[in-house]
């Protein structure tokens, strides 16, 4: 997509947001007059409920249910869309891993746009969990990579493409850095974030060697028509302002036995995702039969994201 189209879409988004905001303002005033109290666009009960909400791992079943319903109500108030937010706990006997064939990747960035839609990423902020680097054929040095190449003209002669996203490190420096345990590794190996617990200090972003973590510098803007209503607590539900987010291997899909959105969207079949504990899985075949490498292995982060060539 061209930069102009990008800008146009953003402006359209902001415009819609403005209209919705004014509408909501009118609605809030009306509701305040008739229905009851309003607090920052939320009911007082919801605002209090959010404020006193516990850490995800310390909530009782009922408290989790309450939190999920609050998330759904908030999404409806903010975006006018009915979403479904589930808990999606990690399945047993699964350890997720990813392998990416850089011989096949052509840099189309279809994975990027699929991820943006699937995971309800803020459209105004243009946050993307996946960054595809256009690399010079003769080096693995990211310093010379082009981050903002034009996908309309790929593949370019003398270049190869290196998509980078959260590596779901087995020894994640971000988890260690978090002062409040708002991010941790679930039993299936995915590093998740409790967006309702994060205090927004961004120390995890400082600690991440893969630039995988992104911050909501303002409340993310989403287009009602484009919202993916199938969401989960630790994954793709609409995020509040002032918290950190990142790729979570599409927990809302993969924990239900599906493939992540980026894998499905890839037109070249470069992406192999699966259960590292299953000896018959495709990912295990790749790891056992291909020459694989990982990014910045010298840092000891033990990524569960491998690259390989044909």
């Amino acid at each position: 997509m061209s930069k102009a189209a990008d800008t146009a879409r953003t402006e359209q988004g902001i415009d819609q947001y403005r209209r919705r905001f004014l509408g909501r303002l009118a609605g809030t005033v009306a509701a305040g007059a008739t229905a009851g109290p309003a607090w920052g666009g939320a009911t007082l009960a919801d605002a209090m409920g959010s404020f006193f909400q516990k850490h995800y791992q310390q909530m009782t079943r009922d408290e989790v249910t309450d939190a999920l319903r609050r998330i759904e109500r908030k999404a409806e108030r903010r975006y006018g869309v009915k979403i479904r937010c589930t808990e999606a706990p990690a399945p047993d006997d699964v350890r997720f891993g990813y392998a990416l064939n850089i011989s096949k990747c052509q840099g189309y960035r279809d994975c990027v746009s699929a991820c943006v839609r699937e995971n309800n990423l803020g459209r105004d902020s243009q946050v993307q969990y996946i960054r595809v680097l256009e690399m010079d054929r003769d080096t693995q040095e990211v310093e010379s990579a082009d981050h903002y190449y034009d996908p309309a003209t790929v593949p370019v002669e003398g270049k190869y493409y290196l998509p980078v996203q959260c590596m779901q490190c087995d020894n994640p420096p971000c988890v260690k850095a978090c002062p409040v345990d708002a991010t941790w590794m679930d039993p299936d190996g995915i590093v998740v974030i409790d967006y309702d617990w994060c205090i927004g200090c961004r120390y995890c972003m400082t600690a991440c060697p893969y630039w995988a973590r992104h911050f909501n510098w303002s409340a993310p803007l989403l287009d009602a028509q484009e919202i993916n209503p199938e969401t989960n607590y630790l994954g793709n539900r609409p995020r509040p302002a002032g918290v950190v987010e990142k790729c979570h291997f599409c927990t809302q899909r993969t924990r239900a036995g599906r493939q992540p959105a980026c894998q499905e969207a890839c037109p070249t079949g470069a992406r192999i995702f699966g259960n590292l504990l299953d000896p018959d899985s495709e990912i295990r075949y790749v790891l056992e039969n291909k020459k694989v490498f990982r990014l910045k292995e010298e840092l000891g982060t033990e990524p569960k994201f491998w690259y390989f060539t044909d």
Binding site: H55, K176, A177, C178, P179, V180, D181, A241
Partner: peptide
């Protein structure tokens, strides 16, 4: 500098979760 100063209490041991001694910020 915090994105969510309203959640500062999340740091208080007992009320919140304090990632000590792992986190240098803690």
């Amino acid at each position: 500098d915090l994105g969510r100063p309203d959640r500062l209490l999340h740091m208080i041991p007992g009320i919140g979760r304090f990632n000590f001694p792992d986190s240098l910020l803690a």
